[in-house]
Each structure stands twice: as C-alpha cells, then as structure tokens.
C-alpha cells in the first residue's frame, strides 16, 4: 500500500467533513419537515377557518346549516369530560405512583403491577373504548354519558400520570424522607407533607400532558357510541330542567354529550365542503387547546429542571 501524500489526506478529510455536513443538513431537514407539518396544519386551519372563528361559533349549537353551526355543546362537553377524567385520574394516578415508589416491597405483585402499567401504556386507545363499551356502558349501566367517557379517558391516561408521579418522586433525595422520619413522622405523614408537595410540579406536568392527550382522543369516545347530534347542554346544577324538575348537583355526569374531536370528525366526514370550514375552525380551537397544554407542561418542566437544587 502506498502512503498517502498530504494532498490526498486533505482530500479525504474534506470528503469526510462534507459527508458530516450533508448528514447534519439532512437531520435539520427532517426536523424541518416536522415543524413544517405543524406550521402547515395551523396555517391551513387559520386561513380556512378564519371566517368562522368568532364569538358566535363558540356560542352556537351544531346545526345542519354549516354557516350557523357552532361548537358550544362540543367545548362544554370536552370541558365536562375532562373534569371527570381529572377527578378520577389524578387521585388514582398519584396514589398508585406513591404506593409503587414509597410503599411497595420488591415482590411478585409489585412486579406484576409494574409490567402491567408498561403494557397498558401501549394498548391502542380504541381498545379502551371497547372496554368502556362492555363495562361502563352496559355492565355498570352508565350509558353513553359524560361519566362513561370521563372514566374511559381516565383509565387511558392513568399510566402517563403514574409514570410522571414516579419519576417526580424518584428525583426527591432520600435525606428528605430520613429527616422527616427522624423527627417521628410516619410514612404517610412523610408522603403527605414532604414527598407529594415536592413532587407536585413533576406530577402536574404529567397530568397536563395526560389531559392534553385525553382532550384530543376520539376513537374511544366514538366506540362508546357517543356520535350523536347534540343541540343542548348538560343540565347545570340546581337549575330547572325542561320537565320542570330541579337538576341535582351531579345530574350532568349522566347526560349525553359531544366533544370537540367528535365534532371535528363529524364535520370532516361530510361531503359538503361548507362543513370543511367548520372542521378547520374547530380543529384550530382544539389544536390551540392541546398545544397550549403541552406548551405549559414543557415550560413547567424546563423551569423545574432549572430551579430545583437539592
């Protein structure tokens, strides 16, 4: 083999550097495609939907006439379903995370629970819909109500909340627990007054990401059979209903409902292009909700990483 002279070596290095630069460019292009998709989506929805994005759109019920249709029942429905989801998923998820990090002994049962949570996180969302259809709608008799939908989505995001809780708890150094227990606190008191408060920002991040996922979920809610024409709001507590009776505090949970993603699906799948405009406007509203929630979570985590010094 002949030794390379300086010029050949330089050419070789230059070629290597060129390849590096080209690959880096490719990486940036791929990232750019992702950014472009987000940008194109938002731009398309804003441009197409702008004529419908006014107060009336938020205050009108769905209608057979595209120009008068609004998303009142959809955003109210989404809000109420999220309320049920949060009320179920947050306490359950935090409690489960606490148990697994602070209480559980290393044994078979704990291992089963852990493997199970990993697997649940990867179960397709539509399968949760089938679970809800069989258990909540028919066996428990909740019907196609806000309660069924809220609980379904709660089960769906439970793994996200549990994993976030566990990660937040794991970041708390052992000296906090030791200090608390050294002055005579029980395990629960340690959790209640130290672990949970310190883990709160991390838990909150997980909860927000979970809720952002839940608010955009369509498939499980369609599966429980909630795709209906809804032109009324669930009964507000302590108001008079149509039949003259006073609505109870929790009557709204059993009410039929619709949510934002279902409204979008409904409008997208209609052949009439006039509804496309509505779909774009509603899609923009949903995107804005989801991206805001994700943005808050990302910002929260960023602040968290910067501020915490044990």
């Amino acid at each position: 083999m002949q030794a390379m002279d300086t010029q050949q070596t330089r050419a070789l290095i230059a070629r290597g550097k060129l390849k590096d630069t080209l690959f880096a460019a490719l990486g940036i292009i791929c990232l750019g495609i992702g950014l472009l998709v987000i940008f194109a989506l938002v731009a398309d929805m804003v441009i197409k939907g702008s004529e419908r994005l006014n107060l009336d759109f938020f205050m009108n019920f769905a209608s057979r006439r595209a120009a008068q249709a609004g998303i009142l029942s959809a955003w109210v429905g989404s809000l109420l379903v999220m309320l049920v989801t949060a009320a179920a998923a947050v306490p359950l998820g935090v409690a489960a995370g606490l148990y697994l990090e602070e209480y559980a002994r290393r044994n078979l049962i704990t291992e089963i629970i852990e493997i199970n949570i990993t697997n649940l996180a990867a179960v397709p969302s539509i399968v949760y819909g089938l679970l809800a259809l069989g258990i909540f709608v028919y066996t428990f008799g909740f019907g196609q109500s806000i309660l069924s939908a809220g609980l379904t989505l709660a089960l769906l995001i439970l793994p996200i909340v549990i994993v976030a809780t566990r990660e937040a708890i794991r970041a708390i150094p052992a000296m906090i627990r030791e200090g608390s227990m050294a002055v005579g606190a029980t395990r629960w008191q340690t959790c209640r007054y130290h672990i949970v408060p310190y883990a709160m920002p991390g838990i909150l991040t997980g909860v927000i990401i979970g809720m952002a996922r839940a608010i955009g979920e369509t498939a499980p809610i369609i599966t429980i059979g909630a795709l209906t024409f809804i032109a009324f709001l669930p009964p507000a507590p302590l108001t008079t209903m149509n039949d003259g009776a006073t609505a109870g505090l929790f009557d709204w949970v059993m009410s039929p409902f619709t949510v934002m993603p279902i409204q979008i699906f409904n409008w997208t799948s209609r052949p009439d292009p006039a509804f496309e405009v509505n779909a774009a406007a509603a899609g923009f509203v949903l995107m804005a909700m989801v991206l805001t929630m994700n943005g808050v979570a990302i910002w929260l985590r960023y602040r968290l990483r910067k501020n915490i010094k044990w």
Binding site: L31, A40, L41, L286, M287, V290, G295
Partner: peptide, 16 residues
C-alpha cells in the same frame, strides 16, 4: 418541536 408534533390530536392529523 417533536413533543408538539407527537401531541397533535389524531383527529387533526386525519383532517390533515
């Protein structure tokens, strides 16, 4: 960017 892309609701991707 990646997280936002992953967070877009699938129904919006369907529309897309």
């Amino acid at each position: 960017i990646l997280e936002m892309l992953g967070g877009i609701p699938t129904i919006v991707f369907g529309y897309f």
